[in-house]
Amino acid sequence: MTSRKKIEELFFKCLMVLSLLAVMGSLVLIIGTVIYKGAGSMSLDMITSTPEGGYYLGKKGGILNAIAGSLILTGIATVAAIALALPLALYINLYRARRSRFAEMVRLSMDFLWGIPSIVYGAFGFSVMIFLGIRASLLGGIIAVTLLIIPIMARAIDEAVSLVPRELLDSSYSLGATRFEAAFKIVVRQCLPGIVSAVLIAFGRGIGDAASVLFTAGFSDRIPLSLSEPAATLPLAIFFQLGTPFPEVRDRAYASALILTVIILALSITARVLASRFNRHIIK
């Protein structure tokens, strides 16, 4: 009887360990594959030059256009999203009662947006652009990506702000601070680690997303210099290079995937380091 119990437990424990190994193993496999395949065709040219004539047929060049395009596009979109998401989170936590109906409605709306697939953002963004008369361009991509990452940032910042102790707010109000001063001078500082990680997560999500920029940003072999020019992005560069029949070009797609993965990993590490760095003022 006892041994049957033990065997059952052992059996399930084995299943659990195998499952966890599968999960962890797939991550290792993904990173490993990308590094193994990508490193082979990696070269300095890849990150320092833009495509030259016949690049997609296997001729010389790199994907600096896409790297720069992605960084510029996502960078501006991130700034735009902070400008909207930070006031949003501060407003529903400080100007409104934290659990008021308005605050809960905003949270619900952000939850909905968070779940909506990025292809829908892309399609919606594209029809907005047609409506406004904008062609596929850096600006179009920025609009779509901003919409995509607003909910991610708003939810994450809201979470950080809602953890600010009531007493800290009471203290600031008791000193005669207005809500505005409490929000931007005290709460923002108190939540800085949370805000920074929210920004980095959102940036990571934005730079890695292909479906939202597929129709909105267009593609170009040059680094975009104005908002109205089409902009290449890394995910799409990978996608398009993979779609060609030439092995050299496909190899470069792997290298591009490696570049994108490295950027994402760097963001994730930065988030961790910065979060611990900014903790020094915080009273838990």
Partner: peptide, 26 residues
């Protein structure tokens, strides 16, 4: 009215700025 709460909640800044915060905003 000055408020002193159950647990101290210093503002997330330096000692100096904690004191200077009030006078500054006023």
């Amino acid at each position: 009215m000055g408020l002193l709460s159950q647990r101290p909640y210093p503002l997330p800044m330096s000692i100096y700025d904690n004191i200077a915060f009030g006078p500054r905003i006023h």
